[in-house]
Design a protein around this nucleic acid. Structure first.
Lengths: 193, 193
DNA sequence: ACTGGTATTAGTACCAAGTGCTAATCCGGA
DNA sequence: TCCGGATTAGCACTTGGTACTAATACCAGT
């Protein structure tokens, strides 16, 4: 019993987390025990066999690929939209969006949600952001659901420039506001809604 | 010979691209042929067996996860940095970053690069963006290499607020400028939370 | 020194999802 | 009718396991 069982098992776990591709035989060599011991260890730790591990890892990929494709075009899920007037999107903040050090969401994610919404609310094939001023009012953390509301400011808009105001809230707290000046290319005169 | 061999094989390929998790037996049922026929088809098309497919898909995940971890904390690669003074990062725009419709980079990616750089240039565990004004001057397209230069504006900065200017260029063209007002917490004991 | 209990190792039968090979059968066209 | 590609069947073998049983090793307590 070179190294105690418990130590070996916890090393086994971390080893497989890092590299799930190892067979029992390879693991046996690494830990200098028999294959059977590795099997028992996996059994006790509830670690599935190689093929099952690969299956779940692969499944995670497929999901992730679908997700990244979806979430790429628009950050946040648009739940309500009246073209050229207003729109609402929801963005659930996860661990992936925050600084590890302090758990606060990185600003560019909130910007991305607001910017995406500003683009989406304009009924235009080619709406681009020209200028934007944004305020991060309160820190947002993982688990928070950010609701962004965009409204088109008709007063200030003209043929080529459209102003969109975005206010994002978590619960009843306003966490972010932004003004977006957008550039549009299609003719807006005939189009009305 | 219900459907010709060629058609079946090309369907097999697309079928497995969509869902690589199918066994030969399941595929045989789907195409209403024998398992052996599926095997021959795979052989002719150079499609590996289920386990190999899962292995490569899983491997892709692991890579992607490493990549997303890296690129998550900072958007763009920081190539030069003098803390509290200036910093430079490089961000290569790919197809993933542009609107399919017009091939122009979504604004929030340029914002993210600039914002990440503004955070990085401050030698602080807890630098947060408070307010920002940004200008998108020229469209950026896939293949472009965006170089962002951040400089800390000492004049306007005080204990609690630091001003960072970011200018991003593609070649000799300035494509983006941004002013970031940052909140810092270092050297003050009364850290609010 | 003997005993008990845990840990480890060994060995067997079996499974899934294949490869590789040979052989038989089907089926359509000249 | 015969030929040839397409299809199907069958068998041995491989990997990386599960499930189970049995043997052995080792350490502690009395």
């Amino acid at each position: 019993m070179r190294i105690p069982k418990g130590v070996r098992q916890s090393r086994l776990v971390t080893s497989l987390e890092q590299n799930p591709f190892m067979t029992d035989e390879e693991l046996a060599k690494q830990f200098k025990v028999s294959v059977q011991t590795i099997r028992l260890d996996r059994l006790e730790c509830g670690i599935p066999e190689l093929r099952e591990r690969l299956k779940t890892v692969a499944a995670r990929t497929m999901e992730a690929e679908v997700k990244s494709l979806q979430s790429d075009e628009v950050i946040g899920e648009i739940v309500d939209i009246v073209l050229d007037k207003r729109a609402i999107s929801i963005f659930d903040v996860t661990e992936d969006h925050v600084f590890q050090r302090n758990g606060i969401a990185r600003g560019h994610h909130l910007f991305a949600q607001a910017n995406s919404l500003a683009v989406a609310v304009l009924d235009d094939d080619l709406a681009l952001t020209v200028t934007s001023t944004v305020n991060f009012l309160r820190p947002v953390k993982a688990g928070h659901r950010v609701i962004a509301r965009a409204t088109v400011d008709k007063e200030r808009s003209n043929e080529r420039r459209t102003f969109v105001e975005v206010t994002s809230t978590v619960g009843s707290d306003v966490v972010f506001t932004g003004q977006f000046q957008m550039y549009q290319t299609t003719e807006q005169s005939g189009r009305k809604n």
